[in-house]
Design a protein around this nucleic acid. Structure first.
Lengths: 245, 245
DNA sequence: AAGTGGTCTAGACCACGTG
DNA sequence: ACGTGGTCTAGACCACTTC
């Protein structure tokens, strides 16, 4: 039976140090989304702790959204789902009213110097070369959202190796398989603006119509900024709801 | 030593039935926001459970936002804070940039037949008499948000007994002290519209300017709908941010 | 010093999913 | 039948707050 060591500040509770250790395994790629962890009894034995203590650590990571547990099956590294993205609140509905992933059309892909606000978010120097995508989201032929997407060139160079036409509607799986970068979480900001000439044309609305602007900064498990994007969509197609207390 | 009975479905876990029982005490007004609960050991003894089981029930209610615990002090019924209200994301900032509660001016208070959408949310019949407020939120003399507020007449009749001029910026404490109804949670929906003539005039913007519309349904601990309101504010003063994973 | 919640132990038994 | 997580017990000791 292998025994592991708990590192970190000895003044911290054991369950927290165990949680940190398990989280670090995910950051380091020792475990990846979808992987199953050893059972709580095995983990407890490995680290020389009582089962209840291991349990507490696992509960903490479930609360953080990093793990998920299924009765009778096991404990798994969660695949981030982005179900709560503000983006989701555009009415992406098919003819039957069901929620659908919109089709994507990549209008442009190029390497550009990073504008100042992009460089700031991605921890680059202004003008550092970066990968730029301009993408249109379409549902049943109707343009709904237009996006600018920025990636640091060094970390994502391999994404230039495939044809833009062959890129499907989801980018994050590509980031993972082609470039080894897993998006673990993101922050989003919502503001309301008015369509400028170019945006209005792409979205097929009159210039000056209200648009919802969503800025998203996506990060890895270790909080490294991976991608910054700005999405603009028709405001009349947007409807957000939330629960407060 | 008083001993209490756990009611409810016997197939449910004990900690859940205990949580339900404690929650019901709050619904019934046996305990109110700010009250301190007995210690976990006392609760466990009262219900004939192990301390760990009582602990689990308390943790569940903390997770629901109903209780809060303080090391060395005790367990308390939480006062809902509404920190997460979308409303908060209007730039209510004073000269120093700090977040401030805006001043309020009540433009109208009357008893009106409930419009259909209000009646639906408040579980009334259409045209049932209800209390209506029209209120303006102002910061440093600048109008920011205008609100329509609807209350069921029967439950809130006593709020008609005080002069509208003497009502401060916060209504929910009045609901509690005058009418005995505690707002425990709310749902909010955000959409974007354009200012109609009346709204534009009150907010001092041009007709047709984008406005953010926030609809809120506030509920008591037992989920009874208590208040429905629609707030309209200048879209250029709105900025929402959220964390996703 | 007394009382509170926070951490931790060392189990038992049950319910669920899979082979 | 077996291994998983879920529930529950019955404590011990520690850290924090209050008196």
């Amino acid at each position: 039976m292998s025994t592991a060591e708990l590192l970190g500040d000895e003044r911290l509770p054991l369950y927290q140090r165990l949680a940190d250790s398990l989280r670090q395994d995910i950051v380091d790629g020792v475990r990846s989304p979808g992987d199953r962890l050893p059972s709580e009894n095995v983990i407890a034995e490995e680290y020389g702790l009582a089962p209840g203590t291991a349990r507490q650590a696992l509960a903490k990571l479930v609360g953080e959204g990093i793990l998920e547990r299924f009765h009778g099956k096991g404990t798994f590294v969660r695949r981030p789902s982005f179900d709560k993205s503000l983006f989701r609140f555009f009415r992406f509905r098919g003819a039957d009213g069901a929620h659908v992933v919109p089709q994507s059309r990549i209008l442009q892909r190029s390497v550009e110097p990073a504008p100042a606000h992009v460089a700031r978010h991605l921890n680059l120097k202004a003008e550092d070369p970066s990968i730029f995508f301009n993408r249109l989201r379409v549902i049943e032929g109707v343009p709904v959202v237009v996006e600018e997407i920025w990636l640091p060139l060094e970390a994502f160079r391999d994404i230039l190796s495939i044809e833009p036409e062959s890129i499907g509607p989801l980018l994050y799986p590509l980031y993972s398989t082609l470039c080894g970068h897993v998006v673990a979480r993101a922050q989003e900001e919502l503001t309301v603006g008015r369509a400028e000439a170019e945006t209005a044309e792409i979205l097929c609305v009159a210039e000056g119509e209200p648009v919802v602007v969503i800025d998203r900064l996506a990060r890895g498990y270790d909080d490294t900024p991976l991608e910054w994007r700005r999405s603009r969509g028709r405001a009349d197609q947007f409807h957000y709801h939330t629960e407060i207390r």
